[in-house]
């Protein structure tokens, strides 16, 4: 679906801004919002480009840079931090070679830190796109990443 038809699904009210931005970003192959997207949204909602830009920059789930097809969000809440002792990040780095805030050259994976994902009883956890992975340890992380690589 092209950007214009995604936007047109929503009423042109400013309170739809976040929902529209989410939808646009989810439809982008590289999980990010382009400058053109922002302009389209501004026009549609009858607001300024800078207002839309300000919103996108504020919320950590939106990105203005291309991200991997698979966005890995590692929970960095105090509790996951206490239980994981950096295992998750170390293991991710060993398997795909990148750290928080980075993206692999082939635009397959990017890694981000996230605040509490709300799965504290199953910590440590991470999310890959829409799916949550719990009770992580080195072996499990290896398997998850391998599975994604195989099935992609």
């Amino acid at each position: 679906m092209d950007e214009q038809s995604i936007i047109s699904k929503f009423e042109p009210n400013k309170d739809n801004m976040l929902n529209i931005l989410h939808e646009l970003q989810n439809n982008n192959q590289n999980n990010f919002l382009t400058n053109e997207d922002l302009k389209l949204v501004a026009e549609y909602l009858n607001t300024s480009y800078s207002a839309v830009y300000g919103v996108v920059k504020y919320y950590s789930m939106f990105s203005l840079k291309p991200r991997g097809k698979y966005v890995i969000r590692v929970c960095k809440s105090p509790l996951c931090h206490m239980l994981d002792k950096e295992i998750v990040l170390t293991e991710i780095k060993q398997n795909i070679g990148i750290d928080i805030g980075e993206c692999t050259d082939n635009l397959m994976f990017s890694v981000e830190a996230s605040e509490c994902l709300g799965y504290c009883a199953e910590a440590p956890v991470m999310m890959i796109n829409d799916k949550v992975y719990t009770y992580l340890d080195s072996k499990k992380i290896k398997e998850i990443i391998q599975n994604i690589k195989l099935n992609d």
Binding site: L18, H22, V55, Y58, Y59, S60
Partner: peptide, 25 residues
């Protein structure tokens, strides 16, 4: 249904309303 976008602060009621109006939280 409205979606947040990764801001802890938006859980505070008045900030949530700002965010609902389509603004920075």
């Amino acid at each position: 249904i409205k979606l947040g976008a990764g801001s802890y602060l938006c859980g505070e009621e008045l900030t949530l309303l700002e965010s609902l109006e389509g603004k920075r939280g």
